Amino acid sequence: MKIKLLIFNLLPLVFYAQVGINTTAPTQTLDVNGSLRVRGITQVGSAAAAKDSIMAFDSDGVVKYISANSIASSADPGSVKVATNSTLSGDGSTSNPLRIAQQGASANQVLTWNGTSWIPANQAGASNWLLTGNSNATSSNFLGTINDVPMSIKSNNTTMLEFGRRETLGLYESTSTLAPYNQKDASVSYVRGSNGISALQFEAGGASFYKPIVFTDTSGNFLMRGSSAGTDFFELGSTGTNDNGQLLFTIGDDGNEPMIFRKYNYSPVAYVEMMRLQGTGLDSNVRAGINMNGTTANSTLQVNGSVSQSIATISANTTLDETQFTVICNNSSNITVSLPNASDCPGRMYILKKNTSSGTVSVSSFINSLGTSVTSITTGVYQLQSDGTNWQQIN
């Protein structure tokens, strides 16, 4: 009966008490004040199952489980020592950090995984154009194509500029007799756009407006407009519609800007003004001057120099046109000089001179200096001008 009582009273000690070895005050279920040795350890079935099975002691000596990654991450930098193979170099210390070995790579090469191992390869910046720019470009590098296709530059998914052969770009005109449209192998820089028109504009910080631009319009005209003196502009190019083309020259803003034609002398170095066309304000009045040396013409036309007009001698019937001016009638028999209709050429002038006393010269009707309509001339000089209705003798 006493034995049973003893066993019964020990059961709480076996299941619920803290056992101490070499200590009278255990703090854990088993508190060993001394070393611990475990015999007959059973190995885990696989390395994968055992890689994180690490037993560690905390600062109070309590046995705990902790992962290998937690131990490595809590270590001081450079304190982890590793045994490296040919893929890695360094031992993980501060003075010799762990890194990938050279693996045969040279300057500007990187290591890439080929499915089996790391091998050297040229980095993208050594053979490609980068969005951030390239610092290792050489004279042999280029941006473009090596086959016969257009080199295209786009913005907003719209082609803005193309480079290529004329035929490759679809610009070759086999039936044209005008170069360079019929040169299929010619190199072309093709400015593209949208809606069939395009433009090429230039920066001009000193221009208030009318920024320089080369452009086309919907009628197929090609023009160049640019700034002049900050606030004025000039323009040259083509204009017109429906097979009614025109060549256009424009200068202005307030109507007084001149259009100057000049030449350049190499020696002595100088610009020489040849002709000046200039307005006189916001009206329809213009003046043209030749050899004006920088001054404005004092009349609609001012020529500082000689003027040459055509002169011809006739002895047979002649019809006058816009190519004649002075006509000398050197006839011995009767002839007829026909004037154009006065209404077709208002302001046009002719000078008729009869040299001989023999033979008559019949002329289209004109009003002589006495106000009489006559149809012939005798020896002498007659200066005739159209008033839009009749030919008038004005000398």
Rank of each mutant, 00 (worst) to 15 (best):
Q109T: 01
G104K: 05
P150Y: 05
A137M: 05
N134I: 01
N122V: 08
A107S: 12
N134M: 03
G125W: 03
A124K: 06
S127C: 02
T116K: 12
T138F: 02
N122S: 15
W113C: 08
S106F: 09
K154H: 15
N141C: 09
S127E: 03
W113T: 07
T116L: 11
N128Y: 04
W113R: 04
G144R: 00
S117D: 10
A126Y: 02
S152W: 00
N134H: 01
T145C: 13
D148S: 13
P120A: 09
Q109S: 09
T132G: 12
S155F: 13
G133I: 11
F142K: 05
M151E: 11
P120N: 03
T112N: 15
N147P: 00
A124G: 03
N122C: 02
G144N: 00
M151N: 12
I153K: 01
N128V: 01
G133Y: 10
N141S: 10
G133W: 08
N141L: 04
T138M: 05
A105R: 15
T145S: 15
I119F: 03
I119N: 08
W113Y: 14
N136H: 05
S155E: 14
S117P: 03
W118Q: 13
P150C: 14
L130A: 08
N114P: 10
Q102S: 13
A105W: 00
N108Q: 13
L130V: 02
W129P: 03
T145F: 07
L131C: 13
N147G: 09
Q109L: 02
W129C: 08
G104A: 07
M151A: 14
T138P: 08
N156C: 03
S106Y: 02
F142Q: 01
A126M: 07
F142W: 04
S127K: 01
Q102C: 12
K154G: 13
M151F: 14
A107M: 05
G144M: 01
G115D: 09
S139T: 11
T132Q: 11
G104L: 10
N147I: 13
L130P: 00
N114V: 04
G115Y: 06
A105M: 12
N136Q: 14
N156P: 02
A121W: 09
G125V: 04
S117W: 02
A124H: 06
N122K: 10
N114L: 09
I153V: 11
F142L: 09
S117H: 01
S140Y: 03
P120L: 07
L111C: 14
S135G: 08
S117C: 09
D148P: 02
T112R: 13
S139P: 04
S117N: 11
G133V: 12
L143D: 02
N141H: 01
A121M: 10
A105K: 13
N156F: 12
A121S: 15
K154A: 15
A124T: 02
G104W: 02
W118H: 11
P120I: 06
G144Y: 00
F142S: 06
G144P: 04
N141G: 04
G133F: 10
S140G: 14
W118F: 15
N147L: 07
S152R: 11
Q109Y: 05
P150E: 14
T116N: 10
N134V: 00
A101W: 01
I153W: 04
A126Q: 06
